[in-house]
Nucleic acid binder design. Sequence first.
DNA 1: GATGAATGAGGTTTCATTCAT
DNA 2: CATGAATGAAACCTCATTCAT
Lengths: 240, 240, 240, 240
Amino acid sequence: MDTAVVRGTRRAAAAPAGQGDGNARGQSTGRKRDPERTRAEILKVSTGVFAAQGYSGARVDEIAALTRTTKRMIYYYFGSKEQLYLEVLKDAYGGIRAAEREIQVGSLNPRDAVRRLAELTYDHHAQHSDFIRLVMIENIHRGVFIRQVESIRDLVQPAVGLLEEILKRGRAEGVFRHDADAFDVHLVISSYCVFQVANQYTFGYLFGRDLQEPPLSDHLRSMLGDVVVAWLETGAEIKN
Amino acid sequence: MDTAVVRGTRRAAAAPAGQGDGNARGQSTGRKRDPERTRAEILKVSTGVFAAQGYSGARVDEIAALTRTTKRMIYYYFGSKEQLYLEVLKDAYGGIRAAEREIQVGSLNPRDAVRRLAELTYDHHAQHSDFIRLVMIENIHRGVFIRQVESIRDLVQPAVGLLEEILKRGRAEGVFRHDADAFDVHLVISSYCVFQVANQYTFGYLFGRDLQEPPLSDHLRSMLGDVVVAWLETGAEIKN
Amino acid sequence: MDTAVVRGTRRAAAAPAGQGDGNARGQSTGRKRDPERTRAEILKVSTGVFAAQGYSGARVDEIAALTRTTKRMIYYYFGSKEQLYLEVLKDAYGGIRAAEREIQVGSLNPRDAVRRLAELTYDHHAQHSDFIRLVMIENIHRGVFIRQVESIRDLVQPAVGLLEEILKRGRAEGVFRHDADAFDVHLVISSYCVFQVANQYTFGYLFGRDLQEPPLSDHLRSMLGDVVVAWLETGAEIKN
Amino acid sequence: MDTAVVRGTRRAAAAPAGQGDGNARGQSTGRKRDPERTRAEILKVSTGVFAAQGYSGARVDEIAALTRTTKRMIYYYFGSKEQLYLEVLKDAYGGIRAAEREIQVGSLNPRDAVRRLAELTYDHHAQHSDFIRLVMIENIHRGVFIRQVESIRDLVQPAVGLLEEILKRGRAEGVFRHDADAFDVHLVISSYCVFQVANQYTFGYLFGRDLQEPPLSDHLRSMLGDVVVAWLETGAEIKN
DNA sequence: GATGAATGAGGTTTCATTCAT
DNA sequence: CATGAATGAAACCTCATTCAT
């Protein structure tokens, strides 16, 4: 597994004299004593490591080694591996939702708006694979961690809010079907977008195609638009 | 050391012929000395544990405890945790593909056939959450394990074969669009079906709804049919 | 971890059905049921493995794997790893002494005889590195095993007997010194001959020269003759 | 040993200047938190255990038990059993070569100098049986470990340097033969000295005499001098 | 005689975490 | 704020050996 690769390097060369388990570093170059910065660095590095190795697979030692501080500091700032992971999760969700709020599709007609939204979401996911990996990890753990971070729940509204608005307009204009609400559409879009990142390795291996590479990835992006729009437009006249 | 070299040859041919017949041996006492059974039990239990805890999270000790045999036997039969996981993976893929081959939709018209296929796939995924979890775990590990089990790759054809046939008929009858091939449709269906299992915990927590519970799950099943059919039927007349 | 790499190869292909730890083999080709032969084969293979890996380093599994029989047979014939090693030791000493008895130098004058004996011993050691390695291993274990094989002790006489005879003749003829007995000469010769085999790896590495390779090995052989003869001839006239 | 050198750098400014005065540090409790000491202790104990049991035979548990620290600390300082062994090897070679450099024979004539050197080497080996055992162990492993410690190779020069000088003088004075170089003489001396330690158990058992006990050991020491001197002086007049 | 399956004890290594300064 | 040293518990894996047939 890739953990092996990462770990393999860890002790590389096994420096002549013993120097501890993971993190030995003689650096004394410049910036130090900046708690905010230190904390942020640990958080950033941890995000990468947790996303790469999973919760059990992540090593506090490895995180420390990738940081300018020591392992002790991680405990100083975060208390435990679990607390650290919780912070990482919270931070990741916060960042992703903030980005979602940036989306502006008000000026487009419903059909184009929903296509735009879907395609932006598609790119957004592709660009934040670490976040998606964290979500996968959370689900592997049956959501035991996310449930401890209440603040995350509050962030979900805006994601569907915009969709709701577009759908309402579309239905009012008679171009969208009536039996698909924001939750439904969000789920269709999410599942598709998450999949191409989350399952890229198995799917890519089985079919011998890289879902994230340009020729195919562009096709997949527009295909999502097709799917969503076709679905929403079909049976638009029928009120239910 | 050189031992490694020598040991390399260790396991070569072997396996005492008959396999899959369950219990052909002279097992009299019925509880012990039934290698076929022992191996199968370890495999089954391991599947559950790996699916539940991930690769790093799974404990060989735990697997052993859930078995009628000991930890030592796991190593006797599988050699290492990694080999065991590989075997689990292979077995899981094998089982899933076998089930897929059972699907019969030949008698239906293209439209109904594809809907049927999608909905059966939906249920199929819901019923095999362990498999889906294993796939997630594999992707967390960037597919390093699955790449070691070549036989898995051979199993993928039938999965798309049926779809290909339906699509061909649909296009010939002028009811399906021409710019969506079997791979595309498979991806749309898969992403949707995987999602409701893979992301059920985070999605369920964030929206306060259980994707797998009857009222909602039924809605989701038929929605998938709607999505796929609507998409395929849209623009059917345009040849590209 | 990099061990994984090594281990990865070990169980290559992980044969479909489990087949035990070390030795599984479906062979049924020809000769079987020949106890004498089986025993001899185990002994021969064991000699090589013990010589190669040492007592602790040798693996019963490995020995079995290199045999046409199974691990169980080793226990059947020899009882335990220790007993097997004891037999190996006894067998090795027996073989070496038998070869020593072949040496014929009666027709030569003392000076040529002792040189001949030394050089034959030199070649003899070079050709029986496995025996020398077993002796090293025994010494690593402070001779605890050899002390349990009394028969070995009886074999030592002939080795020095021939030397004694040559020395007697040499002293009588006034060409050899009087303060060197057979034990002394045997030790000088042995130490030199054993060294070039026993320490070939460290010495070879440190000096970048292979003690066993022709240009050098020939030089070393004749040098031994020079050393022994020069030593014995020096001060021959002085009776002590 | 070079470890010391490296460590010297590691702590750079740390150590409060003065050294050799025993306990200059602020070590109050005196029994813990002294990495230098801890590491050194592990190394010393390991040397004994590896020398006594061989690489495979040595148990990390046993080493730990003989230490004031725990097994965990061994891994903290050395990473693995293999690394520890490597360090032991390096340390042992370093120590032995340092001792060799102490030898002073400049004031003696070539004949006495070479005898002196041989006899000092003899005693030196007798006093460092652990080192010799490690060398044996290394050879059993065909030098795979020593090849990983490059620094050891650099230490060999001084060992032969002194000999070279003596031989040159001897040849110039017309008292030493010309066809024996430093490497040759070193090999003759080494083989003899190593043997009486390395093979003491088997040789001692077979002949019923302890090579290391005073009456015999003194005889052997002077015999080595006789052998070497007799050999080097023989044929001194012949230039080749 | 012969065999594949089974095993307990113990081996090396790794982990998150805390201590003393 | 910061740090290197230290640690107990538990992880994975291997060994010589025995059992049931």
